[in-house]
Amino acid sequence: MSAARAGEVLGVNIKALREARGWSLSELARQSSIAKGTLSQLEAGTGNPTIETVFSLSNALQVPVSELLTERSVPEVVLVRSADLEVLSSNAVDLRLLRRLDLTDKVLEIYDQRVRPGGVQRTDGHPGLEHVVVTAGVLRVGPVGGTFELGPGDYVCYPGDVPHVYETVGGPVTSVLMLEYPKA
């Protein structure tokens, strides 16, 4: 999906979720701590969201991030090309949503995650569990005050609703991030 198409999908999903709750743009701005003008641009498909913006919207609307970023379809075969994906960036992390899986009682989002050398990403928390598998590099990750150092092939799972951190140890890190949410 091109960046322009991804922005359109995000805009359509934000508007649909906001309207389903009977919220005005002002109410969503209040709930998410995002400026009304920024939300208007996002709904129009012309904004440039950051990871923090998308997670703030996810928390405010109480939906998984993938609910905001994906079109609804159920193909038998799914091929995702990294080059076609919208990148959500922060000061340290680049995320690409590879797939959203709607399971019986859970939603699972699978991301390609890249952490830049010297980068530190702190997150206040969000619903669900985080699953992390490092594929290259060394990553310090987990709840603040109780992080783990992961190398290639290492895996950790922890509650996402507590403040947590992603930090490189040395060079760049590539990993798979899976966010597991209870189904709404």
Rank of each mutant, 00 (worst) to 15 (best):
Y166R: 02
P152M: 05
G146V: 00
V173K: 03
R114Y: 15
G171P: 04
V134P: 00
A136G: 04
R140K: 13
G170H: 11
V162A: 13
V144N: 03
D161H: 15
V138S: 08
G153N: 11
V138G: 01
Y111F: 15
L108G: 01
T104P: 02
E109R: 07
Y166H: 14
T168V: 08
Y111R: 06
P159Q: 09
V133H: 07
D124Q: 12
L103I: 04
D112L: 12
E149C: 03
G119P: 11
T104L: 11
L108F: 09
V141Q: 02
G171W: 07
G171H: 06
R116W: 02
E149I: 03
V162C: 09
V162L: 15
G125A: 06
K106A: 12
R116M: 12
V138E: 13
D161I: 06
P172I: 02
H126A: 10
Q113A: 15
F148C: 02
V120Q: 08
T104I: 08
R100M: 13
L108I: 14
G118D: 10
R116E: 12
Y158N: 07
G151R: 13
P117T: 09
P159V: 06
D102N: 13
L139G: 00
T123D: 12
P172F: 03
I110Q: 11
T147W: 04
E167W: 03
G119Q: 08
R122S: 12
G146N: 14
T104A: 14
P172S: 13
L139W: 03
T147P: 05
P159T: 08
I110T: 13
V120M: 06
V132Y: 01
D154N: 11
L150W: 02
Y155N: 06
P143S: 11
C157V: 14
G128F: 03
T168W: 05
E109T: 10
V165A: 06
A136Q: 12
P172H: 08
R122T: 11
G171L: 09
Y111K: 01
P143E: 15
E149R: 13
P152W: 02
A136T: 15
V132R: 00
L139K: 00
L103T: 11
G153V: 03
V133N: 03
V138Y: 09
L108H: 09
V134K: 01
V138I: 14
V169I: 15
T168R: 10
